[in-house]
């Protein structure tokens, strides 16, 4: 039997995820500022609406909907039209209001999901929950609560989170949320021969296989494009020893603190 999938519409990424996310799961996309977390999340929503007839909801804690809609238009995604057609809602709100809302029965979010038949949701970004609790244990519980509420509502969720580490080193410590989510994607800047590249790794995907190698990706006029395995064509084409690239990526992802 083939497990149904929730494709992101990002060709190379879906391949890495063995077809896409699993339905009704919470998927964490983490990366440094500007790595394309919001773009990936918007693409996931756009693809759901246009390719699968799956309405979506975006909860934005930072960027105003009017700006987010403008950013989407930049990639050719007509979020204004989706909203007018009742297939999308971009909601400006805060973590505290969201939590209070999902704690009650038939809250605003739950009612809205019913109304538009939403199947996909984006939360951009989880980092704003840090305002609510200083204690990492409490913070994890809040994140856990939100994730469970979204699952209870039957949604497949993409949650973004900032990681302040720009190049190489991963931030240490309270990575509790990584245990709670069903899949964990890491976006990173990688420096190779004084040029900055973007690289992506699927750190985990619960209940499914996934690619374990590191891939290069780019943000283009059509959104994220995941390119082939980095150790392949690039090194050969540029005449640079393949190991240089592979090592650079390995250093960025696999040996925290070292570069």
């Amino acid at each position: 039997m083939i497990t149904p999938r929730v494709p992101t519409g990002i060709a190379g990424l879906d391949e890495m995820l063995a077809g896409g996310f699993l339905p009704g799961t919470a998927n964490l996309v983490e990366g440094a500022p500007g790595t394309g977390k919001s773009t990936l999340a918007m693409q996931f929503i756009e693809h759901g609406i246009t390719a699968h007839g799956e309405p979506g909801i975006i909860l934005t804690f930072e960027e105003f909907p009017e700006h987010l809609i403008r950013d989407a238009a930049n990639f050719g995604w007509d979020f204004a039209a989706h909203q007018a057609a009742g297939r999308l809602r971009v909601i400006q709100t805060s973590p505290e209001v969201t939590l209070a809302d999902v704690r009650r029965t038939s809250g605003r979010l739950e009612t809205l999901i019913e109304q538009i038949g939403a199947r996909r949701v984006v939360v951009d970004s989880l980092s704003h929950f840090e305002r609510l609790a200083a204690d990492p244990v409490e913070l994890r519980l809040l994140g856990f609560e939100l994730i469970n509420a979204l699952k209870r509502m039957g949604l497949t969720a993409v949650l973004t989170r900032e990681n302040p580490a720009l190049l190489g080193e991963t931030s240490e410590g309270d990575d509790d949320l990584a245990y709670v989510v069903d899949s964990y994607l890491l976006l990173r800047y990688v420096e190779i021969e004084s040029a900055v590249h973007k690289a992506l790794l699927v750190l985990k995907q619960r209940g499914s296989g996934h690619a374990t190698d590191i891939r290069q990706y780019a943000i283009t006029a059509r959104g994220l494009e995941v390119r082939s395995r980095f150790a392949g064509t690039h090194g050969i084409m540029s005449g640079t020893p393949v190991m240089t690239h592979t090592e650079a990526f390995a250093a960025a992802f696999l040996t925290p603190g070292k570069k």
């Binding site: 105003f64 909907p65 805060s94 209001v97 809302d101």
Partner: peptide, 12 residues
């Protein structure tokens, strides 16, 4: 009007 689906507190 620009962000019609806003739901938030006075503080925010």
């Amino acid at each position: 009007h620009a962000n019609p689906h806003t739901a938030d507190t006075a503080e925010n």
